[in-house]
């Protein structure tokens, strides 16, 4: 069936089977392969994307359920010119090794910091406990997210 939604600010229209997950739709139909699939049963968090402002597991959402939604993937949180402050912080704190969990970490951290730029280490650990990283042991990831908070704090009113 046909489904229309917005990905990274651009409208898309895709013909899909109802059984297609949003993750597979993004990866294989829209060729946005930055979203990774690590378990397909809602545990690892690698496929996290942002739907209407909320971080969600795209393996636990059907593409047809995205009708009319605004979807943001790691590609939408990136630009070619420079790394974003969040990405720079990940690089500085060596918060990634093999890179497979990284897109899910970036989308999750972005959603968290957008809503809670004052979150503490406990909150970061709680939120990221839905994203598995097998390489880093998380220490660098938690530091990176904490260090990126300043970039998400609203500038004080002039």
């Amino acid at each position: 069936m046909a489904v229309q939604f917005e990905v990274n600010g651009k409208p898309v229209s895709v013909e899909v089977e109802p059984r297609l997950t949003l993750a597979d739709c993004l990866r294989h139909h829209l060729r946005l392969t930055g979203t990774h699939v690590g378990c397909e049963h809602g545990v690892c968090g690698a496929c996290t994307v942002i739907v209407n402002g909320d971080a969600v597991r795209s393996c636990l959402m059907l593409a047809v359920q995205a009708e009319g939604a605004k979807v943001t993937t790691v590609e939408g949180l990136s630009n070619d010119a420079d790394l974003t402050p969040l990405q720079k912080s990940f690089r500085k704190h060596h918060a990634l090794q093999c890179g497979f969990c990284t897109p899910g970490m970036i989308t999750t951290a972005h959603a968290l910091l957008s809503e809670e730029p004052d979150c503490d280490a406990d909150r970061v650990r709680e939120v990221l406990s839905g994203n598995i990283c097998r390489c880093t042991g998380y220490i660098g990831i938690v530091e990176a997210v904490l260090d990126a908070r300043s970039a998400y704090k609203k500038a004080p009113a002039p």
Partner: peptide, 9 residues
């Protein structure tokens, strides 16, 4: 209940 992303849906 579950994790951050699951709590959003």
């Amino acid at each position: 209940v579950a994790h951050y992303q699951v709590r959003n849906r």
